[in-house]
Amino acid sequence: MSDVMFVALAVVSTASALLLVTRRNPLYAALCMMVLFGTTALLFLKLSAPFLAAMQVLVYGGAVLMLFLFTIMLLNLHPEELGSEKGLTFKLSAGILSAVLAIFLIYAVKFSRDMTGGSFPELPAGSAAFGSAESVGEGIFDAFVLPFELVSVLIVAAVAGAIVLTKKKL
């Protein structure tokens, strides 16, 4: 049962990712992206990481996708304004590169599993609460307190940079 669900989710998410990069109309691409984010969230849920699943929906499905859609609607480009189609060599080389990367990663995962006797190393927080909001919160304010603070530094720097580059009058 769970394998069937996994395969279904994997197929849908891979297909929507492919459609996302091949659609010419940005609106369709954004819709494919929504499907991709949704299925990824379900995969996280299946991997018993409910917090990550919720974040995937809230942050990516909600905020990031909304930004994309707003931009697309604000620009409101006609098909002829989208620029010329990329050449066949570009498409082919991009396809071959992605295929090589995919095969490489699949092999890497498969061989690593064979060599470790069928199992990956236990994650440190291997308890039942792993992936829940509690364990994430504990991680943020205990083991990862410095990275958490660094994120705020990063955001301040990013805001300062964005303002100085875009504000009309300084």
């Binding site: 660094l150 990063l154 720097a157 990013a158 940079g161 964005a162």
Partner: peptide, 15 residues
């Protein structure tokens, strides 16, 4: 930590 500090550096340098 390495990744976050790399990002602090990069974002500032982009701007």
């Amino acid at each position: 930590t390495l990744f976050l500090s790399l990002e602090i550096m990069s974002i500032s340098i982009y701007a």
